[in-house]
Design a protein around this nucleic acid. Structure first.
Lengths: 201, 201
DNA sequence: CCCGGCTTATGACAGCGGTCATAGTAGCCA
DNA sequence: TGGCTACTATGACCGCTGTCATAAGCCGGG
């Protein structure tokens, strides 16, 4: 995460996402974000005239595009692309982090949803867009693997749902058990849904 | 939710859970809880000398036992108990609420996890206990339905993970789509795992 | 009557939140 | 040099938070 050589604006968005996924939106202060980003406090109102709401929304946006981009990288790294392999790679990103750096943070989109879904509609919308941007490449990848078109989006939704829920449980338990469990149990179902008889040329 | 005729203490715990699942832990103030419960503010420090931390932990506890108890009720209502039927009933509780009362609140345990998992260890532990208390009866029910003993807990974890994640997505989208999707996609897998010693046929 | 308890009632306090206002600096262009 | 724009720097404001201190009400028992 060498975010040191980016503009101060982008660094603040990145730091906001980091702090939000640790402590939640409400507990994350604007001053904290500036300090964490090594950015001057005065830049906050300059780059984010919309205040905290704008900063949070951009952090959620950033997280969504980041997650979506990761999907492409996972696919490129898979020796042979299978639904269970993709899902395992998505989950492994989290188990790796938890086992190497501790269970400090969760998903920033989930945090924004919990804290702002009812009060701040723009953030709720941003979170929905982030989930959609994340589901899209997963569903497309499933289609390429031979999953019927009418189930790709459903299975992608299921994968991300299971991942998000397992993240919550893993953080409470400080144990990756829930994450490895959903991979083990869901993998066969995902692969079974990919019928190789219908590969679109 | 006729919680009017319970002691003020229990009413405050109940109200805390209600407000937490709407706005998150940090955004929920002690004074708000007292007002929502129709309880005097002075009772807060009397019944909860441990402060907000104690109140939140008890709210999480309450949510866990409530969820666990619901499982038993779902089972009693099912005409013939199947894993997919149980899962559908668990999810339907949420779709019913969302369609009748709006997408105001999520799961209080999830909210406590997002907001306190890193900062307040006692709350993190309480959330883990709540999940465990919820998973237990689900796993036991799966065992009764013929699921092999070494998979009951795994499948229960998967069910609750998928539910929690779908809850997040549903709240952001203000649409029960994610909830109905996980039921539709996960149901067959769950039923297929229940082999009551009788092979296919 | 007064006396103990359990509860309720307020008021104050110290701290932090986001936001605004205002002033300062740096660098480029003419 | 002057002036313009982009960015930085502070300090103050008001509202709200959790918590404490203190005192009042209520009510059954002596």
């Amino acid at each position: 995460m060498a975010a040191s050589e980016r503009g101060p604006r982008e660094r603040m968005v990145f730091s906001a996402a980091q702090l939000i996924r640790r402590d939640g939106v409400t507990a994350t202060g604007m001053r904290d974000v500036a300090v964490h980003a090594g950015a001057p406090r005065g830049s906050l109102q300059h780059y984010f005239p919309g205040g905290k709401e704008q900063l949070v929304n951009e952090a959620v946006d950033w997280a969504g595009t980041y997650a979506a981009r990761r999907v492409g990288r996972f696919l490129a790294q898979l020796p042979e692309p299978t639904p269970s392999g993709l899902f395992a790679a998505m989950v492994r990103q989290w188990t790796d982090e938890y086992e190497s750096s501790g269970f400090a943070g969760g998903c920033p989109v989930a945090a924004a949803t919990v804290d702002c879904a009812q009060t701040t509609d723009s953030t709720r919308t941003a979170a929905a867009a982030a989930f959609a941007r994340w589901i899209r490449p997963v569903a497309d990848a499933l289609a390429d693997m031979g999953v019927p078109a009418d189930r790709t989006e459903s299975l992608a939704t299921l994968m991300i749902s299971a991942l998000e829920g397992a993240l919550l449980i893993a953080r409470t338990e400080r144990d990756v058990r829930a994450l490895t469990t959903v991979v083990r149990e869901l993998g066969p179902l995902l692969d079974a849904s990919a019928v190789p008889a219908a590969p679109r040329g």
